[in-house]
Design a binder for these strands. Structure first.
Lengths: 235, 235
DNA sequence: GTATTTTCTTACCGCAGAGTAAATTAGCTG
DNA sequence: CAGCTAATTTACTCTGCGGTAAGAAAATAC
């Protein structure tokens, strides 16, 4: 009896008129209050709770039992929806990577110099990492816990994101908008600054996601130097 | 009982970072080939091997048994030198933080504008993280695995490093060498870019520690913009 | 209603890993 | 050499976790 006796603030099993059903609901465990409902909704509830715990205490420190407890179900119920713990992590990565990529896509439709694209990239990427828990999973979670096969899959997805910034940097160097630099190192510096957000950001902070994204884009492209004729508005 | 209790501070804090002789030897396990020898040397051998494993596969994935195996000893022998696994991690942090701080100290003796100091800080910090395995531990390892007491101790040490960069940024803003910006965010961006080095750097790469440090200092202070009259030499 | 399928629980297995007890070996001292 | 102490091993405990087997309970179908 690892899960101690239940009765965890038993919410009335009555299904009060409201549908409790969005994946982004504030209390994902409510998805399990009703038995026969949308399977995908419950999967999303698991993933969302898992992402939260993974970010809070890491993948390895998070046990399936704890995850189940948060959802007011028992451990084996998780295995009805997911093959194993690893699959949950892989799916978190999947959600996060699509979120980042779609953010990048919508930010980069406009055309400009390579420099402009780099700046737009940084802002979009940083904004997603701040505002999206799955995005933060991609930024923070170590994929070395994964099996070789899963790791390979996740890394090939991540590589696409990394290739994009390098491409824009080279474009900028070619069109003269970006100073010649070591593209590999520059992309690492940018990725590091953004991914690191996950270690210090806590939802509900003073700054909005947009503000953080903009400031990061400015810092990482314009630098810290006080420039002579510089009209940028800094916070 | 157990872990939570007092940590006996087996070594004096001021001695951290001072390696006695062979701690940097290529094969730390050799310290254990001879039975009666310098205790501190063996402690350092353990720490060095532990740091290596922690960086390679994370703290939680690294078992005491595996660590012992690498040193050609048995698990309980480790407990002759260290109270528990956590103490090993704490000592790795200690070594790394002193290494970083001494690097900063020696880089920042010269006085200049705030901007210059920020640049020197970044170069020194990055160089240490690249070249020093304990420094990389500070950058990479998650202190959330630690007990509250140990975590508090480690964080107060880390905070000193963080406070330094913020101080230099503010100095630069005051003296006009640094553009007004959100100091907190700027320090996070810089720390992130540097700490992230640990995730991609592997010893024996193409670039030397000094090269990486210089390029990072340039990237993070000068930015990516191609400037009109800019004499900096980029790779 | 009864049968069937979907969903979830109770009870368990096996294993790995942190840490310990007690015996044992190697070095040191006289 | 004997005897003491420092260093290390063998053998073990205990806990927690990933995962499974088998069946109960609810929803659905007929």
């Amino acid at each position: 009896m690892e899960t101690e006796s239940h009765s965890p603030k038993s919410h009335s099993p009555r299904k009060m008129g409201t549908f409790n059903g969005f994946a982004n609901a504030p209390e994902p465990w409510k998805a399990f209050q009703v038995r026969q409902r949308n399977v995908n909704e419950k999967k999303d509830a698991v993933l969302q709770t898992a992402a939260h715990l993974f970010l809070e205490q890491g993948y390895r420190r998070t046990s399936m039992g704890e995850l189940a407890k948060r959802l007011n179900i028992t451990k084996p119920a998780l295995y009805y929806y997911f093959k194993n713990k690893e699959q949950i992590l892989v799916d978190c990565y999947g959600h996060g990577i699509s979120a980042i990529e779609s953010g990048l896509d919508s930010a980069l439709v406009s055309h400009g110099t390579g420099f402009d694209k780099v700046k737009a990239y940084i802002e979009a990427y940083a904004t997603t990492v701040v505002s999206h828990e799955f995005g933060r999973c991609v930024a923070m979670l170590d994929d070395s816990s994964l099996s070789p096969a899963a790791r390979k899959e996740v890394r090939s997805l991540k590589r696409r994101i990394d290739a994009a910034i390098r491409h824009y940097l080279e474009e900028g160097i070619a069109d003269g908008s970006v100073a010649p630099c070591n593209v590999k190192l520059a992309s690492f510096a940018i990725a590091g600054a953004i991914n690191w957000i996950g270690t210090w950001y806590h939802p509900g902070g003073e700054l909005s996601a947009a503000e953080i994204g903009q400031e990061f884009a400015c810092l990482l492209t314009e630098g810290l130097h006080r420039l002579h004729t510089n009209a940028r508005s800094r916070v």
